[in-house]
Structures are given as C-alpha cells and as structure tokens.
Computed example of a mutant assay.
Amino acid sequence: MSTYSTVETQTVRADNGVDYAYRSLGSGAGAPPLVLLQHFRGNLDNWDPALIDALAHGRRVITFDNTGVGATSGRTPNTVAAMAGDAIEFIDALGLDKVDLLGFSLGSFVAQEIALHRPDLVNRIVLASAAPRGAAGIHGWRRDVIEGVGGREPSPEGYLHAFVPATPEGLAAGQALLGRIYGERTEGHDDPTTWQTRQAQYDAVIEWGIPNHALLERLQGIAQPVFVANGDSDPMIPPRYSYLLAGLLPDVQIKIYPDAAHGFLFQHHKEFAADVNKFLGK
C-alpha cells in the first residue's frame, strides 16, 4: 500500500501547455477529491507525509506543483489570480468536475480565488493560515520572517522560526516534522523551487496584501462551507485574519490550535486531519 513517502510523482499536460507534476494518494467512492494548494516556496516534498496519509484514508488526496514550481514546467506567475487560473487548468486536466480544496498560506489565497472564479468546481474549502485579499497589515511579512524563509537558500532554522513556536514542545515537534519531510522519502524527490519562484510568489503575496477594504466584500461570493484554521502564534499570517475571515464568509467554521505557529497543520497533524475529515463529511 502506498504512502505519501512512497507514492510516485506523475505528470499531466494541461490545455495551457504546462506539464504539472502531482501525486495522488488514496481513493473514495462518492467523495470529491481533496486538492491541496501549497505554501510559499513549497513543492511536493514539503507536505508533511503524516498529514497526507491521515487525510487519504477513504479519500483521494492530490498534491501538485503549480506553474513554474518544482518539477512543473513554465514560469511562476506573480499574482494570486494567475496562480488560481493555473490551478484550475491542472484540475481540468485531471478531468475532475468537483473537488474539495485545502489551501495552506499562499495556497489559501489561491483557494479563495478558485472558489470565486469557478464556484461550480468547488464543494468545500479548508483555509489554513489564511488571510483575505485587501486586509490591512499583510502587505508583506515581518523582517525576521522574510529573512528566515525568503532568502536564496532557506535554512531549517528559518523554517522552524516561522512554522513552530519557540517552546520546548514546539521545537520538538518541529524537529520531528523536519525528519518526516526530509527523511522519509528516499527516492523520487521533487525539484527544488527556484529563486524566480520565490520572487514571483512574494510579489503575489505583496499584491494580495495591498490594503483595500472594499475587496473584503468579495468573500460574500464564497457560498461553499469553509473551515478556517490557524495556530495561535503564527508570525506570518496572525490568527486575527482567521477571525476576520470567519466574520466575512457566509458559511464558516473556525479553529485556532494552541501552542502552534504557521505550520500548525503539521505540528498538530493528527488533530487537524481529524478536524478536516469531519468537516468534509468523512
């Protein structure tokens, strides 16, 4: 039986001419596939195998590299709207008529755009470490965060600074996470993300965060049920934006995980997977 650490990477060509690298795990009769949208600079290998395995019990889970990311061809665009359009191209290329979405960080921005532009495609949505477009205070990240995860050569120390709290429990969970992400897959690794991808994605983050309160009204167009979640000490996208989303979305549940930062969904992977599975109706 395959796990996320052993499942092979596949490729599909979309109508836009892009060859998308993806991994598909699990199956589930009658349940829409769960498509995952990755964080800033992340590729297929940066998903926590323990989380993916837990989500794939009785459900098909699909991870992929969007345009220009990792092993996917093309050039990474510099707006969230373009990333959403590319993600839709990928989903269409797989022949999927209805999906659930789980967007993490930058991926949560993309998930919102997909739901707004192709509402017929989306069943339910999970937004992890998320913020709405135009909210005040997210026009770029804190200096310590961008220094930790935004340099040419990201380091494990910078990753841990953003993804787990600096508590004994948080740091221990972070070391265990690094072991799962970098130690469990022994072959078939994804291509690393490039400097062009990092720059384009950060440009997209900056554009998303230009203060414009009128854009918050767009969230009224997301009619699907949404589960919003975050860690209580996220330095990249603080949990106040989860509460803002919860106040603006028509049909929403919210949960803030204790002693957790940006990578709460990996740190609390068992609890988060159980919460997501319950929300999706498994």
Rank of each mutant, 00 (worst) to 15 (best):
I88M: 01
F109R: 05
A130P: 07
M83C: 00
A135Y: 07
L94W: 03
F109M: 12
A111W: 02
S108A: 14
V99D: 11
T76H: 06
L127P: 05
A128E: 07
D100C: 13
G134E: 10
I91Q: 02
L127S: 10
E113M: 14
A115K: 03
L96G: 02
D86C: 05
T79M: 10
I138M: 13
D86T: 04
R143A: 15
D100V: 11
G95V: 04
I114F: 04
V122K: 03
L101N: 01
F104V: 15
W141I: 09
P119W: 06
G134Y: 10
L116V: 04
G134W: 10
L102K: 06
A84H: 07
K98T: 11
E113W: 10
N78S: 14
D97N: 07
A136Q: 13
L96R: 01
H139Q: 14
A135F: 09
G107T: 08
D97I: 02
A135D: 12
S108T: 06
A131L: 10
R124Y: 00
L106V: 07
G134S: 11
H139T: 12
T76I: 06
T79S: 14
D120F: 05
S129Y: 08
A135I: 09
M83P: 00
R75D: 13
G95L: 02
V99G: 09
G107L: 07
D86M: 03
V126E: 09
S105I: 09
A135H: 07
G85I: 11
F90A: 02
D92R: 12
A130Y: 07
A111D: 02
A135P: 14
G95Y: 02
I114D: 03
D97E: 13
M83Q: 05
D120S: 13
K98N: 09
I114P: 01
L101S: 02
A135T: 12
A82F: 03
L94V: 06
M83Y: 00
I114N: 05
Q112W: 06
T79L: 12
G134P: 14
F109L: 04
P132H: 02
D92Q: 14
K98D: 10
A130I: 06
T76Y: 08
A128Y: 08
A87Q: 03
R118Y: 09
V126L: 14
I88E: 01
D97V: 04
L121V: 11
A130C: 06
A82H: 05
A81H: 15
V110M: 07
R133V: 15
R75L: 10
L116H: 01
I91S: 02
G103S: 08
R133S: 15
P77L: 11
I114Q: 03
A131G: 11
D86Q: 08
D97R: 08
